[in-house]
Amino acid sequence: MSLKKKLGMGVASAALGLALIGGGTYAYFSDTAEASANFAAGTLDLVANPTTIIDVKNIKPGDWMDREFTLQNNGSLDISKVLLETDYEVIDAKGDNAEDFGKYIEVSFLVNKDKKTEVVYKTTLDKLKNDKDDVVERDLLGWVLGGEPSGLKAGTSDKFSVRYKFVDNGKDQNEFQGDQLKLTWKFNAKQTAGQSK
């Protein structure tokens, strides 16, 4: 190895040694802090009780049926509204129906007893299919009568009464003999608006 290379290697080794010594003797203060976060989502849990509001046989035009049921908020979040969605299936026993059986099953009333509000007043199932009424909204009359505020708070329930009626139109309704109408009411709960936490 040439003298130049030996001198260059020596200088480089000396510089590296000084750097290591200087780095080892440099002192400073230090400290650390740690923060964590946890996000737990709440739940919406709406329960209808009973799940079968009505199961009746041998009805005839002019008959009416009164029933009661409860909607319970078993979740951890308040519910701002509960939309009623109506659907039904008609089972035509003889295959002779010229009309929709749902036109002759009337909801005479659907009352929220806690809100003191009449949610539905005299409409037939075929018309109710197109509506999405809020069953936990207190109207003006409910406010005057001292009904609970709109919505359904976590851990509370609302009681309802409903009357169904097989409308007698005063004409021949023989086409509906032996028929069945299977009604499904879906109660679709919506959360309250977001807020600062």
Score class of each variant (00 low, 15 high):
149 P>D: 15
177 Q>N: 10
99 E>D: 15
147 G>Y: 02
88 Y>W: 13
93 A>L: 11
161 S>M: 07
112 N>C: 04
156 T>N: 03
161 S>E: 13
144 V>N: 05
107 V>D: 00
91 I>P: 03
130 N>Q: 07
123 T>E: 14
152 L>S: 02
126 D>W: 06
143 W>T: 12
131 D>R: 08
111 V>T: 12
105 I>D: 13
113 K>A: 11
173 Q>T: 05
97 N>T: 12
165 K>N: 12
87 D>W: 09
181 L>G: 06
128 L>Q: 05
150 S>F: 03
127 K>V: 09
171 K>Y: 07
158 D>L: 01
87 D>P: 04
151 G>Q: 02
94 K>H: 11
168 D>I: 09
135 V>A: 00
183 L>A: 05
162 V>M: 12
157 S>K: 11
143 W>L: 13
98 A>K: 15
180 Q>H: 06
111 V>Y: 03
115 K>V: 03
102 G>R: 00
120 V>W: 07
141 L>R: 10
159 K>A: 06
149 P>R: 05
106 E>R: 14
173 Q>Y: 05
104 Y>T: 07
104 Y>H: 13
180 Q>P: 01
129 K>P: 02
114 D>W: 00
128 L>N: 01
109 F>I: 09
130 N>W: 08
92 D>M: 11
181 L>P: 04
128 L>T: 01
184 T>P: 06
150 S>E: 06
135 V>K: 00
133 D>S: 10
100 D>P: 04
128 L>R: 01
93 A>N: 12
175 E>M: 13
187 F>V: 07
162 V>Q: 06
133 D>N: 10
121 Y>H: 14
182 K>E: 06
185 W>T: 04
111 V>F: 03
108 S>N: 15
123 T>V: 13
98 A>D: 14
114 D>H: 04
107 V>K: 00
180 Q>W: 04
113 K>L: 15
165 K>D: 07
157 S>N: 08
127 K>S: 09
127 K>Q: 11
87 D>R: 14
179 D>C: 05
113 K>T: 12
106 E>N: 14
124 T>S: 10
151 G>Y: 01
179 D>G: 05
128 L>S: 02
149 P>V: 12
180 Q>M: 08
90 V>L: 11
91 I>L: 09
187 F>L: 13
166 F>G: 10
94 K>Y: 12
175 E>Y: 06
135 V>L: 01
95 G>I: 13
113 K>E: 15
97 N>K: 09
126 D>C: 04
116 K>D: 02
144 V>P: 01
186 K>Y: 05
